[in-house]
Amino acid sequence: MSNVLVLNSGSSSLKFQILDPKAGAEVGPQVVGLVEQIGETKGHIVLKHEGEKYELTAEIPDHTVGLTLALELMETNGFGLSNIEIAAVGHRVVHGGTVFSGPQLVDDAALEKMRELIPLAPLHNPANIAGIEVAREMLPEVPHVAVFDTGFFQSMPAEAATYAINKDVADKYSVRRYGFHGTSHEFISQEVPALLGKPAAEVNQIVLHLGNGASASAVRGGKAIDTSMGMTPLAGLVMGTRSGDIDAGVVFHLSRQAGMSVDEIDTLLNHKSGVKGLCGFNDFRDLHAHREAGDAAAELAYRVYIHQLRHYIGAYMIELGRVDAITFTAGVGENDDYVRADALAELENFGIFIDPERNKVRGGARLISTDESPVKVFVVPTNEELAIARFALSLVV
């Protein structure tokens, strides 16, 4: 028995999969589920199993009802937990602070520590914890494992994790670089060595997780040494709706001159900035269509995005000293050949040679650099659910 139920609990949604991590990514999950509009009068549940789709619309006041209804819908259609044995439940948790550097078996003590970290991720950790509580209550005999987005980056050296602010203030309020998307970065960094035919301990790589949220990491010998996101997921690369790096003085300026509150500035930088803030939309298919039509705002937004991406690639090349591989993943990274080509354009002097035809190919893990390129460039689909399932199973068998 090696099936794992992977839960990703949001404030108004619950995503889950049942998969066998021993079967590999090519097999895919047995069940994919989504419970959405939790807390509204009409919630919605969608399940997919063996090519079939099952739906239910009902009032879903909370996560307990949502998960209960989803499991009942599975049972009614012959693929419930009485038919699929579960070895573990893996939970995505956004923030583990400095407390959790790896997957953690969940008990009451661990859950209490997670609650203490809520101030570091007030929009995410409460929902993650709610999902754990519901699942533990419903599946008390199954071991539960928490996997943290920040965990992979706890290996960063102090000079990469430390902000140059007053030490006493930083220590008191836990101000430091934590990094996010760690499950994806770790998954990709574990897949690439096999593509190179080398052990992970011998590989230096740059991982570019480019979705609506975007982050970069420098990984030496399987350990993260730097990442673009910071104390929050706001820092680093330009993203769909987030600004990425800006001068902290912008916050003071908007407060003093525009009279904006902290919450208004928070909303501006997290939800009304980035590519969308620059040109009005954040879907890269729309972005390219508008660029082709001569939209100056879209063109500038794209150039700003690429400029910041190249800035981090260059910085990590220097930090690593030797780069064996650069890998693109997530929605934009896996599907946008324009972004990949422009991000690495004219870097032949640094040993990076992109093959234009390979770069246009879609689907699956693939090499997009030339065979002679000293630095290999890959596209590797991320699979955070599979990574969580692997971590969970590793702690219980």
Rank of each mutant, 00 (worst) to 15 (best):
N212R: 13
Q308T: 08
S215A: 14
V238Q: 12
S273H: 06
L268T: 14
H311L: 08
S273K: 09
K223L: 12
A301F: 07
A293S: 10
A296N: 10
N270M: 10
G259V: 02
I306R: 08
R242P: 00
K223Q: 13
T227A: 15
A224W: 07
G230D: 11
R242S: 04
A235Q: 11
R220M: 02
L254P: 06
R242C: 08
G221Y: 02
L254Q: 11
R310T: 00
V262S: 14
V219I: 13
A258H: 12
L269Y: 01
L269K: 08
L269M: 00
D247V: 04
G294A: 10
F284E: 04
G222A: 04
T232S: 11
G236Q: 08
R310L: 00
S261Y: 10
K223N: 14
A301T: 11
I313W: 01
G221T: 09
D295Y: 08
L300V: 04
A298T: 09
I246Y: 05
R256Q: 15
A214T: 07
A298D: 10
G274I: 06
N282R: 10
G213C: 05
R256W: 06
N270V: 12
G294H: 00
A224Q: 13
S261Q: 11
M239E: 06
R285P: 06
H253F: 03
G294P: 03
H307L: 09
H253T: 14
R291E: 06
H307Q: 08
M231R: 10
D295S: 02
F281T: 13
S243H: 08
F252Q: 13
T227C: 14
Q308L: 03
T241K: 03
S215H: 06
T241I: 02
A218F: 04
A301G: 02
A293H: 05
M260D: 07
L309S: 04
